[in-house]
């Protein structure tokens, strides 16, 4: 993302030199896309995925920190290398602290440092994404954990807002785990949790977000186009899970309230199911 034609020329020459010299072993020719303003850059990022972003801090339409934060929010898993002048080096350093992978001083731009910074940034970022995804998973069930739900739930929510989708939240509990540990073993308790996770995985679709959010608690988030589809989904999942002596369910859905409110409502529904939702004769 660079607006100065001279700078773009310079970068292009550096890339060509890297490719001609095969500067480092394993270097692959890369496709480069230039955006000359912040808005254009954000549009391109919304459309395509990139391996790395080179970001000039003095882009039209943005002011340094602001530009970086917007680009980072648009492509949180793509490494960003900041292009800056030597006077702004302290700012570039502070952006590294905010999540940029590295920075390059424009006046020092050459093929060798550019190649090294690009490759190191991509590798460091790949590692960091893997580590982050591991910490978002529940080791036992391999569903997302509470952190994963918070992290990815927000994205689901934003997507729903953008596309005017209904958000369906399910809370499920698995009471009796302590009894299993006490009466049988810790291993049997774990088997019960894995079985419950598999049941949920089978009942929901791959695009839904399912997480183990507590010792005996699961949460799932699904996005649906109409309220009729929401009802159908609730019916479908309840039918899939009925007849199994495992999970108690609570539901909430909306296209308006906040995600936290929906989670709370679904939790309340779970409790109330045990107490009042009995007219249909179903107390699972």
């Amino acid at each position: 993302m660079e607006d100065e034609p001279d700078e773009i020329q310079l970068l292009e020459e550096a890339f060509l030199e890297i490719e001609e010299k095969r500067f480092s072993r394993g270097w692959q020719a890369c496709e480069r896309v230039y955006a000359v303003s912040l808005e254009e850059g954000l549009t391109v990022l919304a459309r395509d995925r990139f391996d790395v972003i080179l970001l000039d801090l003095s882009l039209p339409g943005g002011v340094s920190l602001h530009s970086f934060l917007r680009v980072h929010a648009q492509a949180p898993e793509t490494p960003i290398i900041v292009l800056t002048s030597s006077e702004d080096e302290p700012l570039a350093l502070s952006l590294v602290r905010q999540g940029a992978q590295d920075y390059l001083i424009k006046s020092d731009l050459d093929c060798a440092p550019l190649a090294r910074v690009l490759r190191c940034s991509i590798e460091r970022n790949r590692l960091s994404v893997v580590q982050q995804s591991i910490s978002l998973m529940d080791d036992l069930t391999t569903l997302y954990n509470h952190r994963g739900l918070t992290h990815l739930g927000e994205r689901h929510w934003n997507l729903a807002q953008q596309h005017k989708l209904h958000v369906l939240v399910m809370q499920a509990s698995l009471p009796g785990l302590d009894k299993i540990r006490e009466a049988l073993s810790m291993q049997e308790r774990d088997i019960a949790l894995i079985e419950a996770a598999d049941l949920l995985r089978g009942a929901f679709s791959e695009t839904d977000l399912i997480a183990r959010t507590g010792t005996e608690q699961f949460t799932a988030i699904a996005l649906l186009e109409t309220s009729a589809a929401v009802q159908e989904k609730i019916h479908h999942i309840s039918r899939q899970l009925s007849g199994l002596a495992t999970l108690q369910l609570g539901w909430a859905y909306s296209e308006e309230t906040r995600l936290e409110d929906l989670l709370t409502l679904a939790g309340r529904s779970l409790c109330e199911n045990r107490l009042v939702e009995n007219r249909a004769g179903c107390y699972l």
Binding site: P175, G176, A183, E188, L275
Partner: peptide, 26 residues
């Protein structure tokens, strides 16, 4: 045996006299 033990403990945990009393009160 082990599967039924595990599932039975989970199933029994879904019933309590406390809930029966609360529902009756409702």
């Amino acid at each position: 045996q082990q599967t039924l033990r595990r599932k039975g403990l989970l199933r029994a945990a879904q019933f309590s006299w406390e809930n029966a009393v609360k529902r009756t009160w409702q």
